[in-house]
């Protein structure tokens, strides 16, 4: 059988996609090392904009925003992972129950509903129940939309674990709780970790929903960058963007590697 390489138009289409997807990223990454203040002409290699990020005029603002982003991402990812693990256990190990299909749809709803709709709806919801927008509302919104991202790898992992392991543990005098803690949880750990990493990245990157529910004076890294860009793109933005890109790539790669390693072992 012929490989995909031999399909007509494969090469030009591939090149087009790669160019469109990656050229902007490469440009941003390269120009973050530009010595000149221009964002279009190259003035030699320099780390000055990275220095600017940590010590410059906007350093305090970006520092606070980065702190907010990271603490929110840590808490949102952790909470979402706990909820997603419980949901996966119910869906995969709970046997057939009424509303199983509906539950599945509900868990994954945030993946399908346009983000702007969630953003508006969440804002309306918070104002209806009288919750002041700020750090807490960002956290709550992030927990909600992180759940399906954490759920998918956890459920996939759990589906690959045979039920006989838990039965064997129960047969060998383990209580339900012990069978979960000593057998099932360690076996599903690769899925849990990659679910957490994905949720963390999704939370760290989010702009639209955050922008709606953040309230005045509260910034996360993406909203701070956006605010800064509105007054014109400066090379320090490129440095921050490159740093975020690096963190994202590291996390996603880690999630992938953990998942793959987990699949090989049992």
């Amino acid at each position: 059988m012929k490989g995909v390489r031999h399909y007509p138009g494969f090469l030009p289409l591939t090149i087009l996609c790669l160019v469109v997807l990656y050229t902007p990223l490469i440009v941003v990454a390269v120009y973050s090392f530009n010595a000149s203040t221009s964002i279009t002409s190259w003035g030699g290699f320099s780390l000055r904009w990275y220095g600017e990020v940590f010590t410059g005029r906007e350093a305090a603002r970006f520092g606070q925003a980065a702190w907010n982003s990271i603490t929110i991402a840590l808490m949102a990812a952790t909470t979402a992972t706990v909820i997603a693990t419980a949901a996966a256990l119910a869906m995969v190990r709970g046997g057939p129950f009424r509303g199983r299909q509906a539950s599945f749809a509900l868990i994954n709803l945030p993946l399908m509903v346009p983000e702007i709709v969630i953003a508006v709806a969440t804002l309306i919801f918070f104002s209806t129940i009288g919750l002041r927008t700020g750090y807490l509302t960002i956290l709550l919104a992030h927990i909600t939309f992180c759940i399906p991202f954490a759920y998918l790898p956890i459920a996939a992992r759990l589906e690959g674990i045979e039920g006989t392991y838990e039965q064997a543990a129960r047969d060998l005098y383990a209580t339900r709780a012990q069978a979960f803690r000593l057998i099932l949880l360690p076996l599903m750990m690769p899925g849990v970790i990659s679910g957490w990493l994905l949720a963390f990245i999704i939370s760290l990157d989010d702009f639209i929903i955050t922008n709606f529910v953040k309230g005045a004076g509260m910034e996360t890294l993406p909203t701070a960058i956006f605010g800064s860009v509105k007054q014109g793109i400066k090379p320090n933005i490129m440095a921050i963007s490159t740093l975020m890109l690096l963190v994202s790539v590291l996390f996603v790669t880690a999630a992938y590697l953990i998942n793959r390693k987990g699949r090989q072992s049992p």
Binding site: E162, T164, A168, P266
Partner: peptide, 10 residues
């Protein structure tokens, strides 16, 4: 003793 042994892999 299970058919496919169900030894704990970890």
């Amino acid at each position: 003793v299970f058919q496919h042994y169900a030894l704990f892999p970890h």
